[in-house]
Write a protein that binds this DNA or RNA. Structure first.
Length: 553
DNA sequence: GGACGGTGAAACTTCAGGTTGCCTC
DNA sequence: GAAGTTTCACCGTCC
C-alpha cells in the first residue's frame, strides 16, 4: 500500500494538497488544475471544487461541532436547492417526533446538498444521509471518524482537515492521530465499486506542520499492532469465560492457553504474564466467581499447584454469559446487597449501573454546573446504594459524573424531550439512544445477579425502570404502553385526554380514538382490547375540549 | 439622543467512536 | 492546543 502512496506538494500556499492515489495510479493526476482560491477557508474551496467537478467528498474533522459547522459553512456558499434535497430535508426533520435544533441545522445543510455525520445524529438520519450520498443527492459530508471505517460510499475525495485530536491520555492536549487511522480515512476515497481512482487530501495549517504531515502520514509507516489482552478488564473477562465454558479445567491449562496467544508471542515473557494471570485468578476467586477444589482448605488461586481443578461457580457462569467485566458484576452485587438498607428510588437504581466501566464515557460535570449537581445530589444521595467516596478521592469526579448520568436517565424517564436533553446535558439524540441501551443492558444484568442471590425485592423495581427507559415515560403511562402501536407520544396524548388505561380505551368511542392516534391505530387498539369495531364513515375533525399537543409537556 | 444592528476582539468552553445481552410493569 | 461559541465594547445608522 505504501508503495502506491504518492503525494503532490503544492508549495507556497498556506496549505498542502497531497494527492494520495489509492487505486489505479494515474500519473496525469499530478497535473490537475489548481483549486480555485475563492475563500480563505481551504476546506470550503476544496468542497466547492469537488462539486464543480461533479464528484463527491467526505471531510474528516476532529469534533462533532466542527463537523456541523463545516457542513453549514459549505452549505451557505451553495445557492441552489433541488426538489430532491428539499424532500430529503423534510425526511431529516421527520426522523424524530420532536426535532431538535441539531435536526433543523442538519436539514438546512441537506437542503443545499451537504450534511454532517457523527455519533450524535440518530440511526435513521445516518441512514438517510448515507443513502442520499450513494444516490448523489448529497455531495459533501463533513464527519467525525464515524465514517472512517466500515462504510462504502462513492466519495472521490477524502479531505482530511484535522490530523490532530484532543486527548487526555498521556500528555493532555492536541495529539496527532495514528497513521492507521489516517489510512482508514484516506481509504474512504475511490472505492472500487464506484471509482477507479480517488484522492486523499490533507490540509496543513502551517509550513512546519506540512512537513510533519508529509513525513508522518504520506511517507511514514503505520504503527505496530499490540495485543490488548493485558488490559485488566479484558483479561479477567476472558479468563472467567474460559473457566465458565469449561474450555480449561486446570491452572496448567490456563497457562498453556495464554502461552499460545498473540499477547504471549509479542511480549515473550511468560513469567511476567503468569503473575498477571494469577492476580486476576485471585480476584475472580475473591469475587466468588471461580472456585478451586481445595476451597474448603483455604487454598487461594496463587497457592494452587498447576494441576488442581478450577471451576466457575453458578454466579461466575452467569457473569461470563452476561459478558460484563467481572469487576462490574462484583460492584453491582455489592450495591444490590446494600439496597436492602436504603429506600428504593429510581435514582438509586439508575446510579447503581451508571457508575460502571461499561457506562463510560459518562456525562462530565462542567465547572459552571458543579454547584447545581451537588445541590441536586444532596436531595437524592439517601437513595444511592454505593458508598459515597470522599471528595478528596481521585474517583470522586467519576462518582459525580455517574450521578449526572443518572439524572440524565431520570429526566428521560420523566418524559423530557430530546431538545431538553440536548440543551440541559449536551447529549445529542443519537447519543441518547446509545446510553439508554447500555443502561438497560446493565439493569438486565443486575436483575439476573439479584435473582441468583435471592435479592428479588429489587427486581420488580428494575423491571419497571427498564420498561420506562425503553419508552422514556413516567410510570402512569405503563398500562397504555402494553398496546402494540402505542409509544411514548401516543400514550401521552391519550393520557392527557383522559384515557389512562385499557379500560379507558374500551370506554372511549373509536371515532374519538381515531382523532387522537389515527384511524388504523384506533381500529387496531380496539381490537387489542377485544373490541372489533368499524369506524364511522365521517369523523368529526374538531379537537375535543381539553385536547393538547404533546409539545407543551 | 436613544434604539438598534453589525462587527470584531476577548474570554470562555469543550473536545471520536462501538462491541458485548435479553425481551420486560 | 485549538476550534467554536458567547460575551461585550464599540461604532455607525436610523428615526
Amino acid at each position: 500500500m505504501s508503495k502506491n502512496r504518492q503525494f503532490n506538494d503544492k508549495t507556497g500556499q498556506n496549505y498542502i494538497k497531497l494527492q494520495h492515489f489509492l487505486r489505479k495510479v494515474d500519473k496525469n493526476m499530478n497535473n490537475t488544475s489548481d483549486v480555485e482560491q475563492k475563500y480563505v477557508n481551504e476546506t470550503i474551496n476544496l468542497a466547492l471544487d469537488t462539486i464543480k467537478k461533479d464528484k463527491q467528498a467526505l471531510i474528516f474533522v476532529n469534533s462533532k461541532r466542527s463537523a456541523e459547522k463545516t457542513a453549514e459553512d459549505i452549505a451557505q456558499k451553495i445557492k441552489k436547492t433541488t426538489t430532491e434535497t428539499e424532500t430529503l430535508a423534510e425526511k431529516i426533520i421527520e426522523a424524530i417526533p420532536k426535532p431538535t435544533k441539531q435536526c433543523e441545522r442538519l436539514a438546512r445543510c441537506v437542503r443545499k446538498g451537504t450534511a454532517f455525520h457523527h455519533a450524535g445524529i440518530t440511526q435513521k438520519q445516518r441512514q438517510i444521509i448515507e443513502d442520499a450520498f450513494r444516490a448523489g443527492t448529497i455531495k459533501i459530508i463533513a464527519c467525525t471518524p464515524t465514517l472512517a471505517a466500515g462504510v462504502d460510499l462513492p466519495a472521490y475525495r477524502s479531505i482530511i482537515r484535522d490530523l490532530k485530536r484532543f486527548s487526555t491520555a498521556g500528555w493532555s492536549g492536541m495529539q496527532y492521530i495514528p497513521v492507521l487511522e489516517y489510512l482508514q480515512m484516506a481509504g474512504r476515497a475511490g472505492r472500487p465499486d464506484y471509482d477507479s481512482e480517488g484522492e486523499a487530501i490533507c490540509i496543513a495549517p502551517s509550513d512546519t506542520e506540512k512537513e510533519v504531515i508529509k513525513e508522518k502520514y504520506l511517507l511514514g509507516r503505520p504503527e505496530e499492532i499490540y495485543s490488548k489482552l493485558a488490559v485488566e478488564p479484558v483479561l479477567r473477562t476472558y479468563l472467567l469465560s474460559l473457566v465458565a465454558t469449561g474450555f480449561v479445567h486446570k491452572k496448567s491449562e490456563i497457562m498453556d492457553f495464554f502461552s499460545r496467544t498473540f499477547w504471549a508471542y509479542q511480549f515473550n515473557d511468560m513469567a511476567h504474564l503468569r503473575g498477571i494471570i494469577e492476580s486476576q485468578l485471585n480476584l475472580l476467586e475473591n469475587y466468588e466467581f471461580i472456585i478451586t477444589k481445595q476451597k474448603d482448605e483455604f487454598v487461594t488461586a496463587s497457592d494452587m499447584t498447576e494441576d488442581e481443578n478450577i471451576r466457575a461457580t453458578f454466579l461466575g457462569k452467569r457473569v461470563a454469559q452476561l459478558y460484563i467485566d467481572p469487576l462490574t458484576a462484583h460492584l453491582l452485587i455489592k450495591r444490590i446487597r446494600r439496597s436492602t438498607e436504603k429506600p428504593m428510588h429510581e435514582f438509586g437504581i439508575l446510579q447503581m449501573v451508571t457508575n460502571t466501566l461499561e457506562m463510560r464515557p459518562l456525562l462530565k460535570v462542567k465547572t459552571k454546573e458543579y454547584e447545581q449537581v451537588l445541590e441536586k445530589l444532596n436531595r437524592y444521595e439517601q437513595f444511592i446504594f454505593q458508598k459515597e467516596p470522599s471528595i478528596y478521592d481521585p474517583e470522586y469526579d467519576e462518582y459525580l459524573a455517574s450521578v449526572k448520568t443518572a439524572f440524565f436517565l431520570m429526566d428521560w424517564i420523566d418524559e423530557k424531550d430530546e431538545e431538553f436533553l440536548l440543551t440541559q446535558y449536551d447529549v445529542r439524540p443519537g447519543e441518547t439512544r446509545g446510553k439508554i441501551e447500555r443502561a438497560d443492558w446493565l439493569l438486565y444484568c443486575s436483575e439476573e445477579l439479584a435473582g441468583i442471590m435471592h435479592f428479588n425485592h429489587i427486581n420488580k423495581h428494575i423491571k419497571k425502570i427498564r420498561f420506562r427507559l425503553k419508552y422514556g415515560v413516567k410510570e402512569e403511562l405503563l398500562s397504555l404502553l402494553r398496546l402494540k402501536g402505542i409509544g411514548r407520544v401516543r400514550a401521552r396524548k391519550l393520557f392527557h385526554n383522559g384515557i389512562k388505561d385499557l379500560g379507558g380505551i374500551k370506554r372511549t368511542e373509536i371515532s374519538v380514538l381515531a382523532q387522537l392516534v389515527g384511524k388504523a391505530v384506533a381500529i387496531d387498539v380496539k381490537r387489542q382490547v377485544g373490541q372489533e369495531e368499524e369506524l364511522p364513515e365521517t369523523i368529526p375533525l374538531t379537537k375535543r375540549k381539553g385536547q393538547m399537543s404533546l409539545g407543551k409537556y
